[in-house]
Design a protein around this nucleic acid. Sequence first.
DNA 1: CTGAAAGCGCTTACAG
DNA 2: CTGAAAGCGCTTACAG
Lengths: 320, 320
Amino acid sequence: MRPTIKDVAKKAKVSTATVSRIVNKLDGYSDETRERVLSTISALGYRRNAVARGLVRRSVNTVGVLLQGIETRAHLLGHSVIVCNTSSDGERTIEYLDVLGERRVDGILFTSERVKPAYARAFKELAIPVVLVSSFSRDYPLPYVKVDDEAAARDMTRYLIDKGHRRIALITGSEKDSIAGAPRIRGFRRAMKEAGLPVPEGWVVQGDFHYKSGYRAMGELLERARGMTAVFATSDEMALGALSCSFSAGLRVPADLSVVGYDDTLDAEMAIPPLTTVHQPIREMGERATAILLGSEEERRSVILPHAIVERGSVKEVVR
Amino acid sequence: MRPTIKDVAKKAKVSTATVSRIVNKLDGYSDETRERVLSTISALGYRRNAVARGLVRRSVNTVGVLLQGIETRAHLLGHSVIVCNTSSDGERTIEYLDVLGERRVDGILFTSERVKPAYARAFKELAIPVVLVSSFSRDYPLPYVKVDDEAAARDMTRYLIDKGHRRIALITGSEKDSIAGAPRIRGFRRAMKEAGLPVPEGWVVQGDFHYKSGYRAMGELLERARGMTAVFATSDEMALGALSCSFSAGLRVPADLSVVGYDDTLDAEMAIPPLTTVHQPIREMGERATAILLGSEEERRSVILPHAIVERGSVKEVVR
DNA sequence: CTGAAAGCGCTTACAG
DNA sequence: CTGAAAGCGCTTACAG
């Protein structure tokens, strides 16, 4: 059982009223009492229950937002969804984990970021089920739902090879990113190797999944990758950057160069030309993840969902 | 005061236990009791308090989602945010309003959709403050934060005129849409009129703000708008559609045709060419709206935020 | 089929 | 500076 304010009060030999005052930073206690209560709190790992507090205060510190067209992954049937926008450097992640814990949510969908030790610790303390969406952890046995990134990258590379391409460059995330980086690089290299194709030095350029990095990476490739006929960017945004850069350089896609992406976001469809890309079943991922979260203990198993290649207009068939 | 389960019990002359059973659809009551309680409930306008329920049940029917890169407008400092993804036909809106009410959120940010009478009624019953974001209502005195759509559309049209364009077409939302439709059409027509420029029959084409409709609209314009040198689409997505369609038709933007949008989404920046568009201060709108929601009664005033035109690469200066 | 009562985990006058 | 006690609005054994 999670410790309550009563447990703290008993252990610190004060009343719950005093604990409450201290926790809420009101006044009416000696420094000495404060110290004692505070250390009891951290010893016990006590965390305020925002639900009980909300009942008394008649305010739950939450605003509802009704809007159209938010990303599908934020929409999960049945339950309410509290969205926390973490920054990419993970700065606010722990903080948010705390509020989710205080509010006693039934489960947490964790996405995109690597599970750092501090997060794993927080998950354990919170005692709230977690599932990783479109992610996974080598270090902690957390259930996940994702696509097989290596297989997907391999398939896309093979697709390009089947279309007659032999000189293919890769724009990728970091090799150190064990989720969306390394596996996709592996898949690419593997397909090339299996086809007996070389990957010249400098033809694998690192970006950060965003537009600008794709643009920049394409600039580098244009300088050094002589003879390249296709570029595989491991995110749609980077592929769009590659598209823009190619366009600026006077290249026509796919006539002069083929470009493919990864994700199948709305942007892929709106690109000029429409982007051939790896489709991730985002909506289903969300649904399956929720099912895992809310299901029984035995149902709490990871799942790998099938990916697909959606063909649009950014690849040219090259005849040799 | 909102009625509680006690009020219902007293009025229906049963215990709260019985009311609870009925509300939760358990068994253990006669049909007669059920009818009586149910009608008392609707007479009183009773709605279950999900906070109290969550305290007892130790489950709040909420899952937290931690993710990176969700739309800024869903991120509001301090408070937790529950996101409800309404469909564009407003199908689930009332339903969601209900759960937000049950969960006793401190306020509701309502966006995009017109305030229908049923919503206005729900707002009143819920007794939860509401603010309209990037929207407003002629019929109900709800506070809003938005940009002046008519002025923005007029400014963008003038911008085009200043660049030497005289034959300008408009791709717009519905004339009946009093939020994002009519005002922008008015702004456009007004600027044209002030400059003594004609708007030929058929040069104003209706879309639905999405990509495909922009593509289709552009197709129509290409057929009938002879001599057109610029197109103003009142959403970035429609502008992207116009871009794609122009590209397919072999037109170069901006060399052969200038295209501008409205919104300044991420897509505008990634377009080929980068799109000149009307910027709405989305982030600030969210912050101001929250401030209105959480502020005191006097602070509950509407605000109109300044728009801006961000110049990128989709407009050509035409010399006459 | 129904109710009295305890309890969920807090906060908040009130009294000292 | 501190505590006893009531209360927030429900649910849930338990007893009848």
